[in-house]
């Protein structure tokens, strides 16, 4: 309802809104608030597609605030129980087979997660893009009944980030519909699209997202949110090493 009102508002008053040039920082903040909320939990299936094979898995995730996230595998059976915890202090991985927690080197955060085209940062819904980049609104378009803002993000001086530039497309219902990552040479390296945006737990949400590494044609990873809830009560103990090792849920 809220988005419908907003669309009407945009349609009627579009010229005014466009000229009002919304603050890109605020737009992005709203998108992340919608995506992560204060706390969120979700069940997600992931398909890793390669030209000659495909693999799918299911995991459950919890996030809290900007820093905390925990991801736990449900399927396939071989990987069930593997879990990743990210907090402000670092990132740890738990493996049930060896029953050990392993701290990941910071350099691994930008690396592929579980062989997918997503990095640990992506999976933890990292807010790196909010904090380590400066944002500039470049274009405002109308597409599919929504206003779509294109925001160009360039790394802040001295920020330890891997990308040279990130271009985001945000929709007026606070959903990120496209992300393009450019390497340090300004060449597009990977591209993410929200393939299906729908209502879940009372908010607009990118239900299906696909990441395409641009240097590997025919490879992609798709994640589909099966269930989600937001602003739920999460015990503090959830985002701790002991909970990583001994799941209570």
């Amino acid at each position: 309802m809220r988005s419908l009102l907003f669309v009407t508002f945009v349609l009627v008053l579009a010229p005014n809104v466009v000229s009002a040039a919304p603050d890109p920082d605020a737009l992005l903040k709203k998108v992340f608030d919608n995506y992560r909320a204060n706390t969120s939990t979700g069940t997600v299936s992931m398909v890793i597609h390669r030209p000659d094979w495909e693999r799918s898995m299911t995991f459950k995730s919890w996030t809290r605030g900007d820093d905390d996230a925990i991801v736990r595998f449900l399927a396939p059976a071989k990987d069930a129980g593997n879990a990743t915890l990210k907090s402000a202090r670092g990132t740890w991985v738990f493996n049930p087979k060896i029953n050990q927690v392993i701290k990941l080197p910071a350099s691994m955060m930008a690396q592929s997660w579980m062989g997918s085209d997503f990095s640990y940062n992506d999976l933890a819904k990292s807010t790196e893009i909010l904090n380590d980049y400066t944002h500039r609104l470049t274009t405002t378009d109308i597409a599919g009944g929504h206003t779509v803002w294109t925001i160009e993000c360039t790394p802040k001086a001295g920020a330890a980030v891997v990308w040279g530039k990130v271009v985001l497309k945000l929709r007026d219902d606070d959903v990120m519909v496209e992300q393009t990552y450019y390497d340090q040479d300004g060449k597009p390296a990977r591209h993410m699209t929200a393939d299906r945006v729908g209502d879940i737990a009372g908010r607009s949400y990118p239900l299906v997202m696909t990441m395409h590494p641009l240097d590997a044609p025919g490879s992609w990873t798709r994640i589909e949110t099966i269930a989600a809830s937001f602003n739920i009560a999460v015990p503090d103990s959830l985002f701790t090493l002991s909970s990583l090792q001994n799941p209570r849920e």
Binding site: I98, Q100, M114, G115
Partner: peptide, 16 residues
């Protein structure tokens, strides 16, 4: 030492 990587099938490879 603990080893963590990924196997040929994409599964988690872990070992002590």
């Amino acid at each position: 030492l603990t080893l963590l990587g990924s196997g040929m099938d994409g599964s988690v490879a872990a070992d002590v």
